[in-house]
């Protein structure tokens, strides 16, 4: 319905009344919509509709995910020792000499245990990337370790075909993440034990941590205690506290 280019003053007055009424109702509807979002039942600490927003974004971006898209790399001279942020899961004592981690299948059965030397047996890989924190800061740093992909190969025969996520937790179970398998199989996703060529220290997750420039730091679990292969998304420390489960970059 096209609008007339001109109106008589009588028609204009009627039009003004009608438009102001429509405008008022639209403003009320907008306000009601806003209240509706605020009053939603919570889904892991955010309104359900916003959780659905995160899930929509996950569907879009995991659909667009290309394994050959690499995070930008930098020259090693640009790298510095990473800022420490977040001590969840690191507060208990650890005896590095005695440390080992377990690997579990989707049903929870233990498939194996490993010490650091097992990971050091795998091909060494080093990369200098820009680490990004969900808080907004970024820092160029250098990681050294084994590709997770190579590690996973040790278990390929024992795992079903429909593995969709990998769950990792700290030895004290206080911190835990769930990461999609596409990210875990990516070139730049590593079981890391070196930062700038020297062993990572305790606050960076010694002796072994996950690193990947495809996710924010919240997913890059420090001090691995357990790795479980899953057929659906698992628990996630920050996801349960209102953040996006996917957290992909």
């Amino acid at each position: 319905m096209a609008e007339k280019p001109e109106l008589s003053m009588a028609a204009y007055r009627q039009r003004t009344r009608r438009s102001l009424l429509t405008g008022g109702l639209a403003a009320l509807a907008g306000f009601a919509g806003w209240r509706w979002v605020q009053d939603q039942p919570q889904s892991h600490n955010i309104p359900t509709v916003l959780r659905k927003g995160h899930e929509f974004n996950e569907a879009v971006w995991s659909g667009l995910f290309r394994e050959d898209h690499q995070a930008r790399t930098f020259s090693r001279s640009a790298a510095s020792i990473l800022r420490v942020n977040g001590r969840q899961g690191l507060r208990s004592e650890i005896d590095l000499a005695d440390w080992q981690f377990t690997v579990k299948g989707p049903d929870g059965t233990t498939l194996g245990t490993h010490v650091l030397n097992d990971i050091k047996q795998l091909d060494y890989f080093e990369t200098t990337i820009e680490h990004k924190c969900i808080e907004g800061w970024a820092q160029i740093t250098n990681w050294g370790g084994a590709r997770f992909r190579d590690f996973m190969r040790l278990y390929e025969d024992q795992l079903p075909d429909n593995i969709s996520h990998v769950y990792l937790e700290t030895p004290d179970s206080q911190y835990y993440v769930s990461v999609d398998i596409e990210t875990m199989r990516h070139d730049q996703t590593m079981l890391t034990y070196n930062n700038l060529g020297v062993p990572i220290d305790e606050l960076h997750g010694a002796p072994l941590r996950l690193t990947t420039p495809l996710k924010y730091g919240i997913k890059q679990l420090k001090r691995i205690g357990e790795i479980q292969f899953l057929t659906e998304a698992g628990r996630d420390y920050w996801g349960e506290r209102g953040y996006d489960w996917y957290a992909g970059l």
């Binding site: 509709v49 929509f56 969900i134 209102g242």
Partner: peptide, 14 residues
């Protein structure tokens, strides 16, 4: 309010 900020921002951005 970071988590909520992100949730609103990345949904309403669309």
């Amino acid at each position: 309010r970071l988590a909520r900020g992100i949730a609103f921002h990345f949904t309403f951005a669309w």
